[in-house]
Amino acid sequence: MSKPRSQTIRIFLPSGNPRGIRKVERTSNSNIRLIEIPRTDLHLFYEMKEAGDMGIYFLVGGNQLYIGQTMDLSTRIKQHDKTKAFWQRAFIVVLNNDFRTLDHLYCLEKTAIEHAQAAGRFSLENGTAGNTHRHLHDSIRSDCENIFDEIDTLLAVLNQDFFNEKQKSIVEVEALLEATAQFEIHPAQENSSKDNINEYSIPNTWTGRTITVFCRSRDKILRGKGLFNVETEQILLLEGTMIYRKISETLSSGWREIYQQWLASNFLADSKDPDYYVLQSAQLCTSPSMAAALVLGNNRNGWQYWRTERGLTLDEVYRKK
């Protein structure tokens, strides 16, 4: 996800009721319009021009969440109103004219499902993980990355947090610290033991203030270990890091190329886990998200997935200040 930037958000109340339908969008360079609809106000939404548009949507009730996409929002929401009892509010994302294609819909739906699953804040009611059979052009993926960032921002304006991992309790953090004890190392520039540095094949060019960070997969098993450079925001993946074998087609072409280079250069070896390779030497990643994607095999917000020794995310320590 891109770094926060200043922007102006407009909230429009079609009925004048602040607890009713709300339309939210950026005042400039907006790719989407987000509409919040209480279930009791669906009849009002059906009268709006957006009701016949294509888009993706989120149905929310308690700790349950359903994510979908459709070419006709009115028809699909009416179906869910008859068949799904759990939800109380719908959040509908209408794309602007430049992005009204099936490819954009499928990519956004799948991206949203993956991020919601990774965050684990809600019980996801989807029966599938989204469309996995479309071969998307890089420009479509780039569009969807920007649109997804905008969706996340507009949802946050409405106090909806579907995609960020829930803050852990003290007990959970202590458990994480105990589990990561076996991975404890010191940043190269702060360690005078040459043998320890060589053990992890840390390059001499790695300089700057760093901290040790860890990355877990969805099954909560620690997979990645690295050094985060506070000044450059790079991550040096350390020897012994686990790398998922099945790289997603939605991963950027540049990152997939790096993965293939690692394979060709014998940087990756078989491990005891058949789903993962093990990294044979330290490798530099230009961002936390690149490092998380290469470890876990799919696009991830690395600022949420990499954690410090105290169990805090990089986002909590270095961006939410």
Results as ranks from 00 to 15, higher is better:
C144V: 06
L263T: 07
L284R: 08
A264F: 04
V295M: 04
R33M: 08
V171Y: 14
H115R: 15
G297H: 02
K194G: 14
G55F: 00
T232F: 06
D149S: 13
P38D: 07
V230H: 00
F91H: 06
A112V: 09
F122E: 00
G224T: 02
I35R: 01
L42M: 14
S201C: 11
G130D: 08
G254D: 08
A85P: 09
E114W: 08
N266W: 02
R100P: 06
S139E: 14
I9G: 03
V93H: 00
K246D: 15
A181M: 09
T180C: 03
S201Q: 09
V157H: 04
G52D: 06
Q88A: 12
I9E: 04
L105C: 05
Y318T: 01
I151F: 05
L263G: 09
L65G: 02
G16S: 07
P18N: 07
N191W: 10
R33D: 00
T286E: 11
K272V: 15
D219K: 09
F148R: 03
L312C: 00
L136Y: 15
Y276G: 07
P203R: 06
E233P: 00
K3N: 15
I247T: 08
S142I: 11
Y277F: 13
S201K: 13
R141L: 09
H43Q: 13
D195A: 15
P288H: 05
F12S: 10
